[in-house]
């Protein structure tokens, strides 16, 4: 990048070295990083929309079902485990906070609303990113560096249709279902710690849920998790698909770094988009 300020014939060499360039170095770095970000964002958006246009085609349904099994069904155990303890901890913490105000009767609504509106979508998305997202990036990355994706091109099989589109659609279907499981098991966890262990009345716990949880809260939770599903699946597929174009590494190392980037970036984007979506929905 050249920084030519003298249009009257200043030498280019003056701008390449010297203290001037040193001062501009941080700006250059920030500028390049921002350009790279915008570039990648644009590319990932095109990637997503191109993949979505390939959703409907022959034999796609079978691949989508296969991916739902892989992303969704195989994640149920870990989701249930995490959600049970999340609900139990939430019940335990909330109970001790509510007791101070004599409001332990609101435990059910507090636990359920926290889970449905916030913790359920976010933790589900993060857990799936860790379990299935990383695997998706590694799988596509290895297929890329071992020329399997090039092989698909040569066989006239569209790689986006064959590899990416089913994963994105499966994520959009699986994430809300898993969130529903997370919410339900989390509420049961809250029930165990609040009612079974701490002695809150069972009827009060359940009634509080029925009274304060609105259908709109549930829908908002699902809207959030669908946004997360699109983000996570796109980021993970994109990172794997373009693992060979990384400037910082090559081969197996590039796949490893792509997987790390996919998980970190997905988690950050989940939290950022959580704030944005929440502010729009409230």
């Amino acid at each position: 990048m050249a920084f030519i300020t003298n249009s009257q014939g200043g030498s280019k060499n003056e701008t390449k070295g010297g203290p001037g360039a040193l001062v501009l170095l941080p700006f250059t770095f920030v500028g390049r990083t921002v350009i790279d970000w915008v570039d990648n964002l644009g590319a990932a958006t095109i990637f997503l929309f191109t993949a979505l246009t390939k959703t409907f085609g022959r034999k796609q349904l079978f691949k989508i079902v296969e991916q739902i099994y892989y992303i969704g069904a195989k994640s149920i155990t870990i989701i249930m485990l995490v959600s049970l303890f999340t609900g139990m901890v939430l019940g335990l913490q909330s109970y001790h906070a509510l007791v101070k105000f004599g409001a332990q009767g609101a435990l059910g609504s507090l636990v359920s609303l926290s889970l449905i509106m916030e913790l359920g979508p976010v933790l589900t998305a993060i857990m799936i990113t860790a379990r299935a997202g990383s695997a998706i990036t590694a799988e596509i990355g290895i297929q890329r560096i071992s020329e399997q994706i090039d092989a698909l091109h040569t066989m006239r099989i569209n790689p986006l249709r064959y590899l990416v589109s089913p994963k994105i659609i499966a994520a959009i279907i699986s994430f809300p279902l898993l969130t529903a499981v997370f919410d339900l098991v989390g509420i049961i966890g809250g029930y165990i710690s609040g009612v079974v262990l701490l002695g809150v009345n069972a009827g009060v716990y359940l009634h509080s849920i029925q009274a304060y949880v609105d259908l709109r809260d549930i829908i908002n939770g699902f809207i959030k998790v669908i946004v997360f599903a699109v983000i996570v699946s796109t980021v993970c597929c994109y990172q794997g698909y373009f693992a060979h174009m990384r400037k910082d590494s090559h081969g197996a190392q590039a796949v490893g770094l792509a997987t790390t980037s996919a998980v970190v970036l997905s988690c950050v984007l989940i939290l950022v988009s959580d704030y944005v979506v929440t502010s729009l929905l409230i």
């Binding site: 297929q143 071992s146 020329e147 090039d150 092989a151 066989m155 006239r156 099989i157």
Partner: peptide, 25 residues
Amino acid sequence: YMFQGNALFDSLTVYDNIALPLRET
């Protein structure tokens, strides 16, 4: 195209690898 490194799909059996172009196209 026959690739130097074969580019076989390692998650598919030999049968499925060979059948892939016919199934998909």
